[in-house]
Amino acid sequence: MTIRANNLRFSVLLAALLAVTGCSANFYARKTMELQAAQDLYAAGDYINAAAGFDRIIATHPGAAVEARAYLGLGLSYERMNDYGDALINYRIAVQLYPKDISLMLSLASLYDRLKLFPQALEVYNKALDKDGDNLRANVGIAKTYMSLGYLGLAAQHYEAALENEENPDLRIRMAYIECLYRQRRYQEAEDAMAKALPLGQANAALWLLLAEIQYDRGFRNRAIDSIRRASEISGGRLDIEVRRALWLSTDGSLDDALALARRLRVEYPNDPLVCWTLGMVLLKADKPEEAGRYMKEAASYDARTFISSSAKKIIGYIADAKK
């Protein structure tokens, strides 16, 4: 009798234990499925319903672990919908729930950076870097934030750290580093870094443009014109590159080529104030002040708040004075 009673008690206890475990497992499995469903919606670009899905998970399944994932998803969805305030709140909650997680911190820091809340971005990036001193994204993120604030020297140090810690760093990190050096006029270091980047980016127009800018600033104008031509070819004649090429050709290359290029751009982009301004400049150089003046008048008429407009007005005055 005693043995049977004990067996019965044991069976009841075991059943209760297994039922609890089973329920718990089902609970987590269900949450994972719901998260997966919300993530699928996010991946498909349905951010409204993804956000609703993540929101539902938070409402129905309280618990730090799942909530952190859901808050992150919610933050991402809101960010995609350009609702940065709600995105920020949700990232911050996710970080509070899992303060040890670097990726969550980096999401938060990145959004701070995007919102131009630079001191907050730096604080969170630095916390991430305290946890993982070699973290690539933290180093690049800090560098980018420092660039935004004007601390170019500090930015270069973090780009260097990011490059040192990666065996095959992304070409874009190398380019950001070169640009950082170039903006500080640290030309020799920029060229050294360029020598490492160029073999990896032979088909990268932005890299060739950057090289051209360094060469132009250093006074190696012919080399700069060759490099910008290469950038232009690779990019398929990107407007910002072509405009620079026309202006550079007018000072250090063939004036005829500059004029032909500027006129072609004018045909292709008849309503662009920069193209108009560029053609005016090249015509001025070609000693055609009246025609230059006409284009400058047009450039000045577009948007009075721009430098193009205010400089065009000055150039018109210069032409008028020269005429007298």
Partner: peptide
């Protein structure tokens, strides 16, 4: 659950984008 591609895509774009050059900047 939230794959790494989705998790980092925007951020990586942000990290590497240096912003579009404006017409005024070129002039």
């Amino acid at each position: 659950v939230l794959s790494s591609d989705i998790f980092t895509k925007d951020e990586m774009e942000l990290l590497y984008s240096s912003g579009a050059v404006t017409s005024d900047e070129i002039a």
